[in-house]
Design a protein around this nucleic acid. Sequence first.
DNA 1: GAGCTAAGTGGACACCTTGTCCGTTTGCTG
DNA 2: CAGCAAACGGACAAGGTGTCCACTTAGCTC
Lengths: 220, 220
Amino acid sequence: MSDDEQRGRGASSVHRVGGLLGDLQAADDQPVAPRRRADAERNRAQILAAAEQLFVEQDPRTVTMDRIAKAAGVGRATLYRSFPDPSSVAVALLDEHERRLQGQLIYGPPPLGPGAPAGERLAAFYLAMLDLLERHLPLALGAETGPARFRTGAYGFWRVHVRTLLVDHGIRDPDPLIDIALSPLSPELFQFQRHELGLSTERIGRSLADFARQLLRSGE
Amino acid sequence: MSDDEQRGRGASSVHRVGGLLGDLQAADDQPVAPRRRADAERNRAQILAAAEQLFVEQDPRTVTMDRIAKAAGVGRATLYRSFPDPSSVAVALLDEHERRLQGQLIYGPPPLGPGAPAGERLAAFYLAMLDLLERHLPLALGAETGPARFRTGAYGFWRVHVRTLLVDHGIRDPDPLIDIALSPLSPELFQFQRHELGLSTERIGRSLADFARQLLRSGE
DNA sequence: GAGCTAAGTGGACACCTTGTCCGTTTGCTG
DNA sequence: CAGCAAACGGACAAGGTGTCCACTTAGCTC
């Protein structure tokens, strides 16, 4: 989906090298995905495992490619082969956790899934995201490298979801509002509220839910 | 005000040392402010001027202490004497621009200043901040180094202001909502909406103003 | 206005991170 | 089991970070 996705993961999209062959032997043996070699797969798993630990036990912002490589027991170049920078490793790890929620938003029961009023769905979405942040804050902070955050596949997914809710509610010009509605979910903001201000997750959650219902109020 | 303020600026608030003395020799020879030397003042001005240019003409995130020092024509240690890192330089520069708005919020005419309904005041505040972002985006991006953003004096000011509006409107539990209400003003978000999505500032502004009125609606 | 003192200066140093290059190893295929 | 390309990992050069210390110089005192 995103760039990070293409670079960072790739369990399924390994056919990028195919392009090099040109038209000469185009559609013949091309589509046969050049499977990832076993050692590469193993290294990749080691990297992800080691990185997850690192992100948790030290300031996620200070995790470096060098350290990940050492912790995973692989060379630097090997690491670079799979990921362009530390944040893309965090993105890959987060992705797995986010995937479940993404399924629930589409196929799950209301209020998270379809069927409930837009305001209720937005409130439920906020609470689910808050739960995700609570459980994986280090990864979320590690993934958040400036503007790149907005270009991840996951963020794109949240955008599509929120847009649906806004349109469903009959908002005139939904597009500028999408990211405004998503902005309270910034990992850094959550960290500030939670650990700097000392607010409980429940209290933040209540505020967010009220906020969602107020934003998409039935009697507009 | 903030840490950055104490380190970064100080032209006006030089009486901070006074507090250290306690009651012993209080008002005697202490209050004599340890004036900044003329050459230091000059260097400081050079640094700010050079840095402002740098932030504008290259990616604000890639501005380095080394480059600022070279551009300003001073040694690295001299720079470090005034600022701990590049973002604190950006904060100092931004501060000057923000000060005017801060005055208007307190003493200015409605709807920015006191006198208008909370929803209108919040809408006006959003628009003013948007204007600030539009004009000084590079500085805002340079200042935004992770969680430090929330610890600047300016952010503290915005918090106090928004809290007043929320209380004024009769919100039950205003505190968690403060930062939620401020989150749409994140410089990175603005950059994404403006330059990645291509939304016009007017369109974002309209959305934000509607958003403010909806949030603090009269007929709650 | 000469001398003193400490604030201020700037170059150098040691350390760390980044990407990339390239000789070597290793899995897979026929 | 032989050959080839994918994958590996150590090494390298470039550049950034803070800090230290010998020096300069502003500003006070007499």
